[in-house]
Amino acid sequence: MKIAIDISQIIYGTGVSVYTRKLVETLLTLDRENEYVLFAGAFRRRQEILEAFPNSKVFPIPPIAADFIWNRLHTFPIEKLIGEVDVLHTSDWSEPPSNAFKVTTVHDLYPLKFPRLVHSKILEVHKRRLYWVIKESKRIIVPSVSTKNDLVDLGVKEDIIRVIPEAPSIKKVDEEKILEIKKKYQIREDYLISIGVTPLKNTKKIIKAFHLATAGKDLKLIIAGRPSGIKIDPERNVRILGHIPQSDLAALLSGSKGLIFASLYEGYGIPILDGFTCEVPVITSNIGSMPEVAGNAAELVDPNSVNSIAEGIAKVVRGGKGLVDKGKLRVRDFSWEKTAQMTLDVYKEGQK
């Protein structure tokens, strides 16, 4: 088979970026039988894509143009750019027409479920793309049963949806690396870590719960990520570090006393698995995909309740060794090799 994959999203530092990069890297290692055509649309960041995948085809089509051509007009078949292919795996931004067996990944439906938390232009892009996904995709990959159910609620036929779990994005690092990165960020005290600074990541409630649970304790809260759609005022014992490279995040997570990942909604939740693989206790939400990912290996809390999050934090601070052991067992169920093989099996459905 000749399999085309849109890798445009690898440059944006998001969960979709991690998924796309890890999936493609693993497919290229795992599958020696099929031919892969990697393509992307980029204008100023073309070189970043070529550095990651030197043999990819990068076209001068920025995201706004991709939305206009392929979501709004839905014209100009992708074959005119990349040639004939048997399978087309599209990105989460644009949906070009094609004669190939069309596969896409729907990572989550948060723009539709939380429209007030999304810029109106972004919301409209996702609505336009989803229209063509539902109309034309032969198979839709989702990372969780929760996201599958969200799609079914929108009227998508259940028999074309395939649930393919994802895997950790980072690995535990040694003590020397932890000390090096803590020194880099001037972290001297013990700390809990949270990832993401947005309304959806529930940052304000997490901060309130942290203060409630750790009053009188010499413990800090480190938050990785740039604030987006939210304003966080400076607070005692709380530090927002901004964007953190994946290699530094692995060290910060490995050196923490626990991960607080109490989002209001996730299509999956790779940071939960990252916490497990870095061997720290994880506190996460009891709704959506998060308990599905965590199994019995995390402290589950109600993300809408500051008291519930605080109780979860307090339990972990008192002693999270049992959760660490459960997490080490749980994370063995996930690997990018499994994800890639299951994805390849979906591609092969086009031959039947």
Rank of each mutant, 00 (worst) to 15 (best):
D6F: 00
S8P: 04
S8N: 02
I11V: 15
Y12W: 08
G13L: 03
T14F: 02
G15Y: 00
S17W: 04
L23R: 05
L23E: 03
E25K: 15
T29C: 10
R32E: 15
E35P: 02
Y36I: 11
Y36R: 13
Y36S: 12
A42Q: 08
R44W: 11
E48V: 03
S56Q: 08
F59Q: 06
P60V: 02
P60K: 03
L73H: 03
F76T: 11
I78D: 01
E79F: 00
L81M: 12
I82T: 01
V87K: 05
H89E: 06
S91V: 07
E95C: 10
A100I: 03
F101E: 03
D108I: 00
D108M: 06
D108N: 12
L109R: 13
L112C: 08
F114M: 10
K121L: 13
L123Y: 15
L123T: 03
R129E: 08
Y131M: 10
V133K: 01
I141T: 04
V142S: 06
S144L: 09
K148L: 13
N149Q: 15
N149P: 08
D150A: 12
L151M: 13
G155F: 07
V156W: 10
E166H: 08
P168H: 09
D174H: 15
E175P: 01
I181Y: 11
K184A: 14
Q186C: 09
L192E: 02
L192Q: 04
I195K: 04
G196H: 03
T198I: 02
T203C: 05
K205N: 14
I207Q: 03
I207M: 09
K208R: 11
A209C: 04
F210A: 07
F210P: 03
A213Q: 07
A215H: 13
G216D: 12
K217Q: 15
I223G: 03
S228H: 06
I230N: 02
K231D: 12
E235K: 14
I240P: 05
H243Q: 10
H243S: 09
L252W: 06
E266M: 07
Y268L: 12
G269F: 09
P271N: 11
P271S: 13
G275L: 09
I283Y: 04
N286L: 04
N296L: 01
E299I: 13
P303K: 14
N307E: 11
G319S: 12
V324Y: 05
D325G: 05
L329T: 14
R330T: 05
R330G: 04
D333L: 15
K338G: 04
K338D: 07
T339S: 14
A340Q: 04
Q341W: 01
L344D: 02
V346F: 00
Y347R: 12
Q351C: 10
